[in-house]
Design a protein around this nucleic acid. Structure first.
Length: 200
DNA sequence: TATACGATCACCT
DNA sequence: GGTGATCGTATAC
């Protein structure tokens, strides 16, 4: 099939649904006419202000404002002073939920990715949220930008890859142990056996 | 104004 | 398994 850019309607659904359905879709950064891309193999859902692991759980701030806006916008933030994490805003406007994209299976522009990642081997290029932002040259300039407009250079495509429910593993989210019972929820999803998944 | 720390990674033992 | 790198943000004075 012809690749089809995901629309706002796709993202305007619950974060958990979007997180599951993003598996097998292709994340694309079109940079100076060249594409850097990979198949999404790992995601996490952050389901709203009631979710104590979600940055929006302490209310609307300058940083989290994007999550309270319409679906289909990128939420990019810096973590530990070194890395960026890429999220896509989901759900209805006013409900602060998002999906963290955690790992990719590199497809287009692997040479460029290797340069951006300091000459690492294929499975180390994008097997983690910080790594994939480096590999796709994503930084905070994308924060608040739309992923669904025709002119967007960072977007997600449906390339017709079918993912069966039995290929999807549900697990606890990574690095949110402080979130009490929310840390135990199975809101992390990844493709079974894929070598690019960050942690098994 | 000051301080503590995080949705990570790479490199060490 | 443990730790250091390094900075924006939130929260406390």
């Amino acid at each position: 099939m012809k690749p089809k850019r995901l629309s706002k309607d796709f993202f305007a659904r619950p974060a958990k649904t979007v997180a599951v359905e993003l598996l097998g879709k292709k994340l694309v950064h079109s940079q100076d006419g060249r594409r850097i891309s990979g198949i999404i193999v790992e995601t996490e859902a952050y389901i709203g202000s009631e979710d104590r692991a979600c940055h929006a759980s302490r209310g609307k701030t300058k940083r989290t404002a994007v999550m309270f806006g319409p679906a289909g916008a990128w939420y990019v933030y810096m973590i530990y002073g070194f890395y960026y994490c890429l999220n896509i805003v989901t759900g209805p406007s006013g409900h602060a939920s998002a999906v963290l994209i955690r790992a990719l299976d590199p497809v287009e522009g692997r040479g460029r990715m290797r340069t951006l990642r300091g000459g690492r081997t294929d499975r180390e290029l994008a097997s983690g949220p910080g790594k994939l932002c480096r590999a796709l040259d994503i930084d905070k300039k994308f924060n608040g930008e739309s992923a669904t407009e025709q002119e967007s250079v960072l977007f997600i495509e449906d390339v017709g890859l079918k993912v069966e429910p039995r290929q999807i593993v549900k697990a606890r989210r990574i690095g949110v142990d402080y979130a009490g019972c929310w840390a135990k929820r199975l809101l992390r999803f990844y493709l079974k056996g894929n070598i690019n998944v960050s942690k098994f």
